[in-house]
């Protein structure tokens, strides 16, 4: 979705990053870079710190030591958190939710213009949920909800798309749709960071794997 050409220049660099939460060391001395066009898997056992690591990259939690450098000025990050955090009965339509992805690039402008409206439409089309635009979030299936949230992340035209276990609890069709969309995006040069605990099943072309084991990150090309 990003307009940037596909080249191996870093967007974000992590150097000696350590994260401590509730007096517990979660990530120790992590160093790697996320380059333009990368498709990175972040793998590790449940509770290994995968989500904590991306939350630190997103600036949602403080870091203990080290450095996160955002190399591109005003880099936009599209984020798909784990769905379980959201209120499934929230009164909102698919279109309302997907549109909010645009807000990051609108600075202080209050209303959506035609560019944002078409970004919303395109994202919904890519994930095959355009027919659900006016449907209420509460009436969607798990897969449709997840696609809605992914479409929201895409509308931000992100430099990096960060996805936290997007296929959790999904049926086979929805999972296939989501991974098909990711493959298409990756081929278009979109930088993607995908948290998964089940990389073998995905079978997607990816450029890098970051494994978190015993608080330490291991990077495999």
């Amino acid at each position: 979705m990003s307009d940037s050409p596909v080249e191996k220049t870093p967007i974000i660099k992590l150097e000696g990053l350590s994260i401590v939460l509730s007096d517990q060391l979660i990530i120790k001395d992590a160093s790697f870079s996320i380059d333009h066009g990368d498709f990175i898997y972040i793998i590790g056992e449940n509770g290994s710190g995968k989500t904590t690591l991306v939350r630190a990259i997103l600036g949602l939690i403080p870091i203990k030591s080290g450095k996160i450098t955002v190399c591109k000025k005003h880099a936009l990050i599209g984020y798909l958190p784990q769905e379980s955090n959201l209120d499934p009965n929230f009164p909102a339509t698919v279109e309302e939710i997907v549109s909010t992805g645009n807000l990051g690039k609108m600075r202080l402008r209050p209303f959506y213009k035609s560019a944002e409206k078409s970004a919303t439409k395109n994202a919904m089309k890519l994930l095959r949920i355009d027919s659900l635009a006016k449907k209420k979030f509460v009436n969607l299936s798990g897969g449709q909800k997840q696609k809605t949230l992914l479409a929201r992340a895409l509308t931000s035209s992100p430099d990096i798309l960060i996805l936290d276990e997007p296929s959790n609890n999904l049926d086979a069709v929805s999972r296939k749709d989501i991974y098909h969309a990711l493959e298409t995006l990756s081929e278009q040069g979109q930088t993607i960071l995908l948290i998964t605990h089940d990389p073998e099943r995905l079978n997607l072309k990816h450029s890098k794997t970051i494994e978190i084991k015993d608080k330490v990150t291991h990077v495999y090309a």
């Binding site: 997103l58 949602l60 990050i77 929230f90 549109s99 909010t100 807000l103 990051g104 959506y112 931000s156």
Partner: peptide
């Protein structure tokens, strides 16, 4: 509400996402 309606909606629905896109 008039000038931040969409932002208020984004925060109310998913504060973490809203923060991640710079709100």
């Amino acid at each position: 509400y008039l000038f931040s309606f969409n932002r208020i909606f984004a925060i109310t629905f998913d504060e973490e996402f809203a923060r991640s896109i710079g709100i």
